[in-house]
C-alpha cells in the first residue's frame, strides 16, 4: 500500500511540475523567490528570455551561444559563475572587457528571464522547459534538444 502511495505522490509531483512549468506570471515571479530559481523552471519565462536575447542583440557578441567577441554561453566554463544568480548579476551589473550593465535597460524580471534563458543554452534547465527551434534560419540544435553540458566550472 505504501508503494502505491509513493507512486501516487510521484505522479502528483510530476503533474505539479507541469503546473510550474506552464505558469504565466506577467509581473515577475513572486517575492518568495529571491534567488530566482523559479525562472529557470518556467517555460514561459525562458521563452521570454529567448525573445529578449534576440531583441537586445545579445547575438552581437555571444552569437547563438557559441561566443564571438564575448565568451561562449553554451559550454560549462563560466568566468563569473554559471548559476542563475551569478548570470543574473553579470547581466545586471555588467562585467569588465565589454559586457555592459543592463540594470537600466531591462527590468529585474527581464534580467531573470534572460538569465534563465542563458542557463538553457547549455541545457542547465529541464528539457521540457528549454525552448524548441525558432521559426527562422536555425544555426544548430534547439536548446531543448541539446545534451546537458558538463558540470559548471570556473575559468574561460
Amino acid at each position: 500500500m505504501s508503494s502505491a502511495w509513493a507512486r501516487f505522490a510521484l505522479l502528483a509531483a510530476l503533474l505539479l511540475a507541469g503546473c510550474e512549468r506552464e505558469k504565466r506570471v506577467y509581473s515577475g515571479q513572486p517575492a518568495t523567490n529571491p534567488a530566482g530559481e523559479l525562472y529557470q523552471e518556467n517555460a514561459y519565462d525562458v521563452a521570454q528570455g529567448k525573445r529578449l536575447y534576440t531583441w537586445m542583440n545579445c547575438t552581437g557578441c555571444h552569437a547563438h551561444g557559441g561566443g564571438g567577441i564575448g565568451p561562449a554561453l553554451m559550454d560549462n566554463r563560466w568566468i563569473y559563475g554559471g548559476k542563475i544568480q551569478q548570470i543574473y548579476r553579470s547581466i545586471r551589473d555588467g562585467r569588465k572587457n565589454g559586457m555592459p550593465a543592463w540594470k537600466n535597460r531591462l527590468t529585474d524580471q527581464q534580467i531573470w528571464q534572460l538569465a534563465a534563458y542563458v542557463r538553457s543554452m547549455g541545457r542547465y534547465v529541464r528539457k521540457d522547459v528549454a525552448p524548441s527551434r525558432d521559426d527562422a534560419l536555425n544555426s544548430g540544435k534547439a536548446e531543448s534538444r541539446r545534451e546537458r553540458s558538463a558540470p559548471l566550472e570556473p575559468g574561460r
Binding site: 506577467y26 509581473s27 527590468t107
Partner: peptide, 16 residues
C-alpha cells in the same frame, strides 16, 4: 504604472 495589469502578457514590462 503597470502595463501587465492593463494588458496582461504584453511585451511591455512593468518598470519600477
Amino acid at each position: 504604472a503597470d502595463p501587465q495589469a492593463v494588458k496582461p502578457g504584453a511585451n511591455m514590462p512593468k518598470v519600477d
